[in-house]
């Protein structure tokens, strides 16, 4: 591992913003990362969600996490969105472009992208 000095600079820059993030609640985005999800392409979907959430400055209200098999392997990659006081939204057969759309319209805009969802 090189460039640990660079890491120290990142740390110092972040120290101020972390306190703010601790109070983060709100939206939780969960990506299925078991064999079924991984084989279907969950890794780039997860990474896109993480990057786009940061890019859109949504980190204060959105957390992206991973889970195991959700139980609907044929619909992987599956992304679930949990928001307090609202029904869970399940996005299926996701890919990088769909993930970007979900960040833009749902996580940022508050509008569920119904065409990628399943059931309720």
């Amino acid at each position: 591992m090189k460039s640990l000095a660079e890491l120290a600079a990142i740390r110092d820059k972040m120290k101020n913003s972390v306190a703010m993030r601790d109070g983060a609640s709100g939206i939780r985005v969960v990506v299925g990362m078991a064999t079924c999800g991984i084989a279907a392409g969950a890794r780039p979907v997860l990474n896109t969600l993480v990057e786009e959430v940061a890019k859109e400055n949504l980190s204060d209200k959105v957390t992206v996490t991973q889970t195991g098999c959700i139980g609907i392997c044929q619909y992987e990659p599956v992304v679930e969105v949990y928001e307090e006081g609202k029904d869970k939204v399940t996005y299926v057969k996701m890919d990088v472009d769909k993930a970007k759309e979900v960040v833009e319209q749902h996580l940022k805009g508050g509008k569920v992208v119904a065409k990628y969802t399943i059931g309720k």
Binding site: I10, K13, M14
Partner: peptide
């Protein structure tokens, strides 16, 4: 797992 560290 902060995004800045993951990017680094």
């Amino acid at each position: 797992n902060s995004i800045e560290v993951i990017e680094f």
